[in-house]
């Protein structure tokens, strides 16, 4: 496999808003890779390598507490697509 140079080498992980999360565990039940768990009443990413950034936890969290963060940028070669 050819290694593709990539702008971001750091793996982006879902972010959990501790003020919103009530520890209901829905994200844990739905996560296909067991990347998230509830600890001390709040969701945490326990297996960063496993998370495949699927939309499940974000889509079904009733509190809007877990979300996949992204940055918004202009394309370097804008216009070319």
């Amino acid at each position: 496999m050819i290694a593709q140079p990539h702008a971001s080498t750091v793996t982006v992980l879902p972010e959990i808003d501790r003020n919103r999360c009530n520890g209901c565990g829905i994200c844990v039940a739905l996560c296909p890779t067991h990347a998230v768990a509830v600890r001390d009443g709040c969701a945490v990413i326990v297996d960063a390598d496993a998370c495949n950034f699927c939309p499940l936890c974000e889509t079904y969290c009733p509190q809007g507490a877990i979300g996949r963060p992204f940055t918004i940028t202009f394309c370097a070669t804008e216009g070319g697509g």
Binding site: P55, E58, T71, T73, E78, G81
Partner: peptide, 29 residues
């Protein structure tokens, strides 16, 4: 969230933006 997500995905289909893990890239300002 659902409606914003749908609007964003539609923009990606129209190649106005590109969605990557952790990034939304504006393709056509």
């Amino acid at each position: 969230r659902e409606i914003a997500g749908r609007a964003l995905r539609q923009m990606a289909e129209e190649r106005l933006v590109k969605l990557e893990r952790g990034r939304v890239i504006v393709l056509d300002r």
